[in-house]
C-alpha cells in the first residue's frame, strides 16, 4: 500500500530523513514514535506530499509520488490526514467542514454529502454538533470532527500526526476510542503518537525513529517487552515512566 525506498529529505542544510525504507500493507495499523525532531511527522507528511522529498521513491496505492505525472489531488483524495492542531475551518459549520471536500473533489451531490457527513458525525459520537461552528466545540470534539472530515472522503489510508498531543488529558480517550474503532474496521492507519496504550491495543507494528532513521521496528509485544536497540530502551524508559 505504501512503500518508501531510500527516502531522504533535507530542510535546507538539515537532513531530517536519512535513507528510509518502509513498507505498509493494506489494513495495517502502524504507530510511529520517537523523540522530537526525529523526523516522524515529516515521514507521514511525505506520504501525501505535504513535504516533497529530495531523494528516493515513495509509492502510495501504486501511484509514484515523486513522479510529476501523478495526479496529486487524486492521490490526496485517497489519503486522509488528521493534524495535531485540528485545522478545522472556523468560518464554516461542522457539517460544512466535513462535506466541503466530498462536494468539491468527489463531486458528490449535496444530499449525499450531507447524509454521509451526518452518519460520520454520529459515528464519532457528536451528531448534535452538525450545525455548530468549531469555536463552540471542545478540543476533543473538534478533533473528532477532524477525523470525520478526513473519513468523509472515504480514503484508503488515514494518517494521524500526533492527534492527541494538543488535547487536555480528559479528552484524549474520546479521540483514541474513535481511532481504535477505525483500526478494528480494517483501515490502513499510520499514527504518530506518544500514546503507547493505544499502540499496545491496536498497532500491528511500532516503529521507533531517531535522527531521521528507523531505529527499531517490531510488533507491540516484542517492542515493549524486549526492544533490541539501546536507544529504544532509553526512549521507552522515559515515556513509560508516568
Amino acid at each position: 500500500m505504501i512503500r518508501f525506498r531510500g527516502v531522504s529529505k533535507w530542510f535546507g542544510p538539515l537532513q531530517v530523513l536519512k535513507d528510509v525504507d518502509l513498507d505498509v500493507a493494506a489494513g495495517e495499523v502502524l504507530v510511529v514514535c520517537g523523540p522530537s525532531g526525529s523526523g516522524k511527522s515529516t515521514l507521514i507528511r511525505c506520504i501525501n506530499r505535504l513535504e516533497p522529498i529530495q531523494q528516493g521513491e515513495i509509492a502510495v496505492d501504486g501511484m509514484a509520488l515523486h513522479d510529476p505525472a501523478t495526479d496529486l489531488a487524486k492521490l490526496r483524495a485517497e489519503v486522509g490526514m488528521v493534524f495535531q492542531q485540528f485545522n478545522l475551518y472556523p468560518h464554516m459549520t461542522v457539517l460544512r467542514n466535513i462535506t466541503l471536500a466530498p462536494l468539491k473533489v468527489r463531486k458528490q451531490s449535496p444530499a449525499e454529502a450531507e447524509r454521509i457527513g451526518r452518519d460520520l458525525l454520529d459515528k464519532v459520537g457528536i451528531p448534535e454538533k452538525a450545525d455548530q461552528y468549531p469555536a463552540r466545540l471542545s478540543g476533543g470534539q473538534q478533533q473528532r470532527v477532524a477525523i470525520a472530515r478526513a473519513l468523509a472522503m472515504q480514503p484508503k489510508i488515514m494518517l494521524f500526526d500526533e492527534p492527541t498531543s494538543a488535547l487536555d488529558p480528559e479528552m484524549i480517550n474520546e479521540v483514541l476510542d474513535v481511532m481504535v474503532a477505525l483500526a478494528k474496521e480494517g483501515m490502513t492507519m499510520i499514527v504518530v503518537t506518544h500514546e503507547m496504550g493505544f499502540a499496545r491495543k491496536v498497532a500491528h507494528r511500532i516503529i521507533f525513529m531517531d535522527e531521521g532513521r528507523i531505529v527499531e521496528e517490531a510488533p507491540p509485544e516484542t517492542f515493549f517487552a524486549a526492544p533490541k536497540e539501546e536507544r529504544t530502551r532509553t526512549f521507552l524508559s522515559k515515556i513509560l515512566a508516568h
Binding site: A73, R76, N87, L88, K104, V105, A146, R149, A150
Partner: peptide, 27 residues
Amino acid sequence: VPRGQIEAGLASGLTVGQVLCCITLPQ
C-alpha cells in the same frame, strides 16, 4: 489564515484554487 488549514484543505484533495476560494479568501 493559519497555514494548517491550507494544509488540511490540500491534504483532502482540494486544488490550490479551491483552497483559495473556499478556505483562505472567505476568512
